[in-house]
Design a protein around this nucleic acid. Structure first.
Length: 923
RNA sequence: GCCGAAGUGGCGGAAUUGGCAGACGCGCACGACUCAAAAUCGUGUUCCUUCGGGAGUGAGGGUUCGAUUCCCUCCUUCGGCACCA
């Protein structure tokens, strides 16, 4: 091999990158004669270093875009930078460098790194969200949303450091005790007036994924995130007469509400609290405020709460029930108040047990059965003989006897119990009739009052018998009873006045209709999704274009005055306060309506706002008559394939869908969805299976690998080493294999084997393998199975080398193999494919070629290996003609010596033939 | 706790509709070339085996002539949500 034929990626890669750039072969322009294809990869944040995650996300996306281009589509594959955000501001504070300088220096560096990837980005369409020509339109979108009442202002809590006197982002709050990252002071919640977008108005539409080719995983994540639940709102009243609205998904359990719980922040707290409960309530609320959100939201935390002293009236039956305060009720969901049904809600049940509140079952779980428990020592002689005729099912355990019997036998059972139980013992019976027996007292458990009486008896017993805490807890600890006492499923209603007996599948609808007819409630849908809070008390973001006038309130900046520019002459005080607030003059302006002095909004927008529409800015990044050129929009939109990380499933991917739908309703965009197909790559971890991070020291730098192996090898290895949608830990050893493969390809094309005298079979086999690979690789590019694209090409190379050894070189089949191989390789490894395409003497550029056409005749096998099984186990393999008939296959199989040995003279019961594959002989 | 995904050799992974498990690659072993090494090339490589075979895709069961693939139960790992009424 002469020197110049050694594979030197550091020479050929920059050479071709420059040539492609100069020739503009990746420029995508409107061409109505061709079908468009908008392939979008999620834009990077300019952190200053293109890491392996970017390569992992982008290079297979690029390969797919290139494949679509070769398939004949006019493909747009743009790139840009999501350039606003907190890290730039942190750099400003810690290194005293202006965020703009830091950001644009990083962008410059990352552009170089991105170019080294050899991707087909159309750089003319680059968009940077922190450019005034970009954020002018981010502001414009805000004004449109504001105009259409989709943006509004309300008070909302932020994390606030009382010492630094500033708001903190989520990632600036550290540790279990949630302290400020700078001064370690515990963070408090502070209420600030902030801007919101009405994402919840689109909740139902966002749940509709029809016509979207999105992964099931993402659709489920979004569905859970939106968290739609159907139920009813019911209006209770306090004894003082104030309405107390609750939301419930189980209106069929209304009769089982034995108390109510309101959130500590509920507006009625003060009014409800009685004199003698006042100090306890105050103490409890103070305690919940001190608790961090994390502590408060820990689900395994024991229930806490306090009685207000006040009562409410249950509108369905007029019963008087106590109102409690507890932090398990959230002010941010529903109405901040609930009706508590301890018999059919886990949390209410735990609360009732903790605080000794009555439990009233209103759903029949046992379906006509009753259960009872009797202690061993309680049973007098003759008990079992007396019980036997009742058809009782009896099981013994370590403590006593468990009985199950029909509810109709309950009265007779109680008689037996009365006669055959030693004094001083008691027996519990629970079931459809919900009966309890205490010594000689029998209680039908069918109302709040009887429930209270049961509770009282439990308490008495609790003081008498130290062994048990309360009867409720004891029952809960016995799995035998647990499902009888508490369950959260649907079932026949009981203890519910005229609704008793209503079957579970009709209960909810019937009760809602009845509530509605009586005007005490209505059906209602609630969502977990909250409106999108977009205010950030930060400098490095798009300013919210609002002016506050003492007379006219919040007034939008007139569109012709956009953009509201970020001032450059800002400084960061150690307090961490936003420089926009500190700037001496910037916020002073005049009211657009009256012209009198007014102040600018000093908050900026969440960067998710910038990234909600970047796919539109790519269309015409320098257009100044609107956010995008409508002509470009009409041709390119919607996005055909969107690729990026799964971690954006619930934030960015919901925001951008909301944004598109809102814009559609405002007449700005068209169609129901912005991105038709979504594909997510999995996460690539460090070699230690941990997330790559500098502090762990497990970061694999792509630049180093590119310097050592070349971009093509890194690209191919990333495609090859794991399933793209799964990701997984990086494995450094494997790249050698891909590198070897690339060099073998290079060597084959540079030192072309000498022509020989191939047999017809050699040539037919070569051509078959070429077209079989073409079929597989085409399928794999279509379906994002990049790992098998590369393994398929590796196999083909092995076959080509074998064919060359058999003299295939120089034939027309050989020439076809050489060309198709490079064409299939081109999307994955663009540089070497281009170089070798030139070596073959083919016209520039391989990337302007059409995808090769499959010859279906070529892939047909003429000989197959027939698998012969006996009882499903492979016993022999025989080469036969591919078109062998079923009968002939049977004959061949039975003739086999190996098979005859296994048959051992027995006659087969059955012979199954799978044409072209196998024969299974059953004996 | 709830929702979801995954579990296959020493390792990464393959197996299109239920039909030859382990493609492709790494690693390892042996061999060729070399004074030697690197590189390259070749051969072998799931485990056990008395060399006839036997076992085998997280565990157990089921359906089937036949299961990595379908069904049930369970275990482990990862991801998301988490007192959402």
């Amino acid at each position: 091999m002469s020197d110049q034929k050694i594979y030197k990626p550091d020479e050929i890669e920059p050479k071709w990158q420059e040539r492609w750039e100069k020739d503009g072969i990746y420029w995508s322009d409107i061409d109505k004669s061709r079908k468009k294809y908008y392939a979008l990869t999620m834009l990077p944040y300019p952190s200053g270093d293109l890491h392996m995650g970017h390569w992992w996300a982008m290079s297979p996306s690029d390969a797919r875009a290139r494949y679509m281009r070769m398939k004949g589509y006019n493909v747009l594959f743009p790139i840009g930078f999501d350039a606003f955000g907190l890290p730039a501001e942190n750099a400003a504070i810690s290194r005293n460098i202006h965020p703009r300088k830091w950001t644009y220096a990083n962008i410059e560096k990352m552009r170089k790194q991105l170019r080294s990837m050899g991707a087909m980005f159309d750089w003319r369409r680059e968009a940077i969200s922190s450019d005034p020509e970009y954020y002018r339109w981010t502001e414009w979108f805000f004004i449109q949303l504001h105009k259409h009442n989709l943006a509004y202002r309300k008070k909302a809590p932020v994390d606030w450091c009382p010492k630094c006197n500033t708001t903190l982002a989520r990632e600036q709050v550290w540790g279990e005790d949630r302290h400020c990252e700078r001064c370690n002071t515990p963070v408090i919640k502070k209420e600030l007036e902030q801007w919101f977008f009405r994402t919840t108005s689109y909740a139902d539409e966002l749940l509709d994924f029809s016509n979207l080719d999105w992964p099931e995983r993402v659709r489920l994540l979004q569905t859970n995130w939106i968290g739609r639940s159907e139920g009813a709102s019911v209006i209770f009243h306090t004894e003082q007469g104030d309405p107390l609205e609750v939301f419930t998904t189980r209106p069929d359990t209304l009769w089982g509400a034995t108390f109510m719980v309101i959130a500590p922040e509920h507006p009625l707290v003060e009014k409800l609290t009685t004199q003698d409960q006042n100090s306890q309530v105050k103490a409890y609320i103070a305690q919940t405020l001190r608790q961090s959100e994390i502590q408060r939201e820990a689900a395994d935390k024991e229930k806490s709460g306090v009685f207000t002293g006040g009562y409410a009236i249950n509108p369905v039956n007029g019963k008087r029930i106590p109102i409690w305060i507890a932090d398990y009720v959230l002010m941010t969901y529903g109405t901040g108040a609930i009706m508590a049904v301890p018999a059919h809600d886990q949390r209410d049940f735990e609360f009732a047990i903790k605080f000794g509140l009555p439990i009233l079952p209103v759903i029949d779980r046992l379906d006509g059965l009753t259960k009872s428990f009797v202690h061993h020592s309680a049973v007098k002689e003759g008990f079992f003989e007396a019980v036997a005729p009742l058809g009782v099912n009896c099981e013994k355990d370590a403590e006593g006897w468990n009985f199950t019997f029909l509810v109709e036998k309950a009265d007779e059972f109680i008689q037996v119990v009365k006669n055959y139980i030693s004094p001083g013992h008691w027996v519990e019976i629970v079931g459809s009739k919900w009966l309890f027996v205490f010594d000689q007292e029998i209680i039908i458990w069918d109302s709040v009052e009887t429930s209270q009486r049961i509770l009282e008896l439990c308490r008495q017993r609790n003081s008498e018998v130290k062994k048990y805490r309360t009867l409720m807890e004891m029952l809960w600890q016995r799995p035998f009873y647990r499902d009888a006492l508490y369950h959260d499923g649907y079932g026949t209603m009981i203890n519910s006045e005229e609704f008793s007996g209503t079957p579970g599948d009709q209960a909810k609808d019937k009760v809602i209709a009845w509530l509605q007819s009586r005007g005490i409630g209505k059906s209602l849908v609630n969502y977990r999704l909250r409106d999108w809070l977009i205010s950030r008390q930060r400098y490095w973001g798009a300013p919210i274009p609002i002016i506050y006038c003492p007379e006219h309130g919040a007034v939008a900046v007139p569109e012709e005055e956009l953009p509201v520019l970020l001032p450059d002459d800002v400084e960061w005080r150690p307090t961490g306060e936003s420089p926009l607030k500190l700037h001496p003059t910037w916020k002073n302006t005049t009211c657009p309506i009256c012209g009198k002095p007014a102040e600018r909004e000093t908050d900026t927008m969440d960067t998710f706002m910038c990234s909600s529409w970047y796919h539109l800015r790519y269309l015409s990044p320098h257009y100044d008559k609107g956010p995008f050129d409508p002509e470009e929009y009409d041709y390119w939109m919607p996005v055909d394939t969107y690729t990026g990380g799964i971690e954006h499933a619930t934030m960015h991917l919901i925001y951008t869908r909301f944004f598109h739908k809102a814009c559609r309703d405002m007449g700005i965009t068209k169609g129901p969805e912005p991105m038709l197909q979504l594909r997510n790559q999995g996460i690539i971890l460090g070699e230690d299976s941990e997330k790559m991070s500098k502090s762990r020291g497990n970061v694999v730098a792509p630049d180093e690998l590119v310097a050592r192996y070349g971009a093509d090898t890194v690209r191919a290895y990333l495609m090859f080493f794991a399933r793209w949608d799964m990701g997984g830990p990086w494995s450094s050893g494997g790249i050698e294999g891909t590198s070897r493969w690339i060099r073998r390809v290079w060597a084959l094309y540079q030192n072309m084997p000498k022509p020989g005298n191939p047999t017809k079979e050699t040539l037919r086999n070569l051509r078959r393998k070429v077209h079989q690979t073409l079929k597989q690789v085409t399928h794999d590019y279509e379906s994002f199975e990049f790992n098998t694209v590369i393994s398929g090409l590796m196999e083909l190379l092995n076959e080509m080398i074998k064919a060359a050894e058999n003299g295939a070189a120089g034939s027309k089949e050989w020439q076809e193999a050489l060309e198709i191989f490079l064409l299939m390789m081109a999307p994955a490894t663009p540089h070497i494919a281009e170089e070798l395409w030139a070596v073959l003497g083919k016209p520039y550029s391989v990337h302007l070629q059409a995808w090769p056409v499959l010859d279906p005749q070529a892939i047909i096998e003429d000989v197959i290996t027939l698998v012969i099984q006996v009882n499903g186990k492979v016993r022999d393999r025989i080469e036969v003609a591919a078109n062998i008939s079923e009968e002939d296959a049977k004959v061949v199989a039975l003739k086999s010596e190996v098979i005859q040995k296994f048959l051992g003279g027995k006659t087969p019961q059955k012979i199954i033939v799978v044409p072209g594959k196998l024969v299974n002989i059953v004996i």
